[in-house]
Computed example of a mutant assay.
Amino acid sequence: MTTLSTHVLDAGLGAPAAGVAVTLSGPDGHRVAGGTTDADGRLRFEEPLSPGTHRLLLETGAWFDAAGRDHLHPEVVVAVTVADRPHLHVALLLGPWSYTTYRGS
């Protein structure tokens, strides 16, 4: 089984994105877990994940709104394929008008 973590970085400010609400759902679309990024912009899910397509839903609009910042994306959904590996790390570089995601280490 695989575990998953994420790291959200505010590319506009060059700082971690602390306090972003994140929901993890499984291949069936049901919620597996949820949480909020820590002071370093990180969140680790300890739930073991079976192979298949999982989704991270990041509540980016609420996060930008709380900071009084304009933005384009009210949420970011990152779909990832979970395969047979011990851990999967998904990083998100977040700006008010764009975002980029990649598999981290």
Rank of each mutant, 00 (worst) to 15 (best):
29 G>N: 04
31 R>W: 05
31 R>H: 12
33 A>G: 11
35 G>T: 12
36 T>G: 08
36 T>E: 12
37 T>W: 00
37 T>V: 01
37 T>G: 06
37 T>F: 01
38 D>E: 05
38 D>T: 00
38 D>N: 04
39 A>H: 12
39 A>C: 09
39 A>V: 14
40 D>W: 02
43 L>H: 02
43 L>A: 03
44 R>L: 12
45 F>P: 01
45 F>R: 00
46 E>N: 14
48 P>F: 06
48 P>Q: 08
49 L>H: 03
50 S>I: 09
52 G>E: 14
52 G>V: 09
56 L>R: 00
57 L>E: 06
57 L>F: 08
60 T>N: 08
61 G>E: 11
61 G>A: 09
62 A>W: 01
62 A>K: 02
62 A>D: 08
65 D>F: 05
67 A>D: 14
67 A>S: 14
69 R>V: 08
72 L>W: 08
73 H>K: 03
75 E>S: 14
75 E>T: 10
76 V>C: 01
77 V>D: 12
77 V>T: 15
78 V>L: 15
79 A>E: 14
80 V>Y: 09
81 T>G: 13
81 T>R: 13
83 A>H: 06
83 A>W: 00
86 P>L: 13
86 P>V: 06
86 P>N: 09
88 L>S: 07
88 L>H: 04
89 H>T: 14
92 L>R: 00
93 L>D: 15
93 L>T: 08
94 L>P: 00
